[in-house]
Design a protein around this nucleic acid. Structure first.
Length: 378
RNA sequence: GGAGGGGUAGCGAAGUGGUUAAACGCGGCUGACUGUAACUCAGCUCCCUACGGGUUCGGGGGUUCAAAUCCCUCCCCCUCCA
């Protein structure tokens, strides 16, 4: 794979944080980075133009969901995901591995792959590592993921061992099936909460030589300390010169902790989902805009934010929109939450570059009370 | 003037002698949400000194061990015919 590059720019000398640059055929982004999720080739309620405004770098999309609708053939015919969506920035597609977790009630795992029951119409589906890669080749994202099993938490050691081995075999099969040299392929480390399995999974995955590595199996129900330890048990076994991606994590505490441990990329549906349901992540903490206390609050949602929702609208108005399930309200809050997390990682980059990341992280933990009771993480 | 229908918690609407502080929906309040089956889900919503107590089903009066439910009376609303 030649068009994909990762360079480290600055390293923090108090933590393992670093800043870097990811170069892809569709653009270059700085890390650490938060990546908005657009499962169905759309970051719900947010247009690509608005994503540009809030300086979103990479965005995600999903193999499983696009496979079902509209079908990867249609997206290929459209000229790939970028043209289909009119997105002129790097795109990353998840492999469908997360659906092994989220759609666990309607799937069966076998060595060959995963038999799903189509959640839309009940059809029998079969997703294999090779199929996932083929779909992702057709979708044409800049970064694609190995098809893995994201196991639920908690899992027994025996089950996890079996799962890790299977995911390793799937990773190998996927890598062998990967045909497009313009797409970077990432491997995914699993192992749950078991330190030795994390190390084992990491070492074996790294042996296969991927373009980047993910820490998978996080935010599936475990506590924060457990998650932080999963990161700790994985990163040391990942190569320094390849990007590290903590999958599915989007709380302030976990992003900052991840960065301090040397993670470069994060993605999460949390900011957009909670936005649609009325919760804002702000520089002064969590705000549930549905709460009655905001009905006559004509101040900005987050005084410390530069997004259009905060610059142009009041809490009272946003509350009114959300209470009435108006699309505009969901859109404005989504834009705000995404901007908030993107800005957080930009601030982290700046802090790393200026040699004050540790202080920055500590200040944020203090401000949000992550060390004293705020386990929510934002 | 005549005939008929109806008044139940913020609203709509069940219930027509006991298991009813009263279904259900809406509205209201609160919470949840982490590689998106999610404009979703959960709880609370008569009052209180609240694992117990106090008052409710238009008003008043009866029958009954027991009434939102049966009887009497008054008030109010709606429809149709004059």
């Amino acid at each position: 794979m030649d068009k994909f590059k990762f360079n480290i720019n600055t390293k923090c000398n108090e933590t393992k944080a670093r800043t870097g640059t990811i170069v892809t055929p569709n653009g270059t982004v700085k890390t650490p980075i938060f990546m908005p999720v657009g499962t169905l080739a759309s970051v719900k309620y947010v247009s690509p133009e608005e994503l540009t405004d809030i300086e979103a770098g990479i965005i995600l999309s999903n193999t499983y969901h696009l496979w079902l609708r509209p079908g990867e053939d249609i997206i290929k015919e459209a000229g790939g995901l970028h043209r289909f969506m009119n997105v002129k920035r790097p795109i990353l597609t998840d492999s469908g591995g997360f659906q092994v977790f989220s759609l666990s009630s309607m799937r069966k795992i076998t060595e060959e792959g995963v038999a799903f029951r189509n959640h839309l119409n009940g059809d029998a589906l079969f997703l294999t590592p090779e199929k996932s890669i083929q779909i992702q080749n057709d979708l044409g994202a800049d970064i694609i993921m190995s098809f893995d099993e994201c196991p639920a938490y908690p899992a027994t050691y025996e089950y996890m061992k079996e799962s890790v081995d299977r995911t390793l075999r799937w990773a190998k099969r996927g890598k062998d099936a990967h045909k497009n040299p313009n797409q970077a392929l990432f491997g995914i480390v699993q192992g749950g909460e078991f330190s030795d399995l994390r190390e084992y999974s990491a070492r074996k995955t790294v042996e296969m030589d991927f373009d980047g590595y993910s820490i998978g199996g996080t935010s599936v129900g475990e506590s924060k300390p457990v998650m932080f330890k999963m990161i700790q048990d994985t990163v040391p076994f990942l190569p320094e010169d390849k990007p590290r991606y903590l999958m599915g994590v989007g709380t302030v505490d976990a992003i900052l902790d991840g960065i301090s441990q040397g993670v470069d990329m994060f993605d999460c549906v949390l900011p957009t989902r909670i936005a649609r349901h009325g919760t804002a992540m702000t520089t002064i903490g969590r705000i549930n805009i549905r709460n009655q206390q905001y009905d006559r609050d004509f101040t900005p949602l987050d005084p410390g934010c530069d997004c259009i929702a905060c610059k142009n609208y009041t809490r009272a108005y946003l509350r009114h929109l959300i209470k009435n399930k108006e699309g505009l309200g969901m859109r404005l809050l989504s834009i705000h939450n995404l901007r908030f997390l993107i800005k957080l990682t930009q601030n982290a980059q700046e802090a790393i570059e200026e040699g004050r990341f540790k202080a920055f992280k500590d200040e944020m933990f203090e401000r949000f009370g992550f060390n004293k009771g705020n386990t929510k993480g934002y």
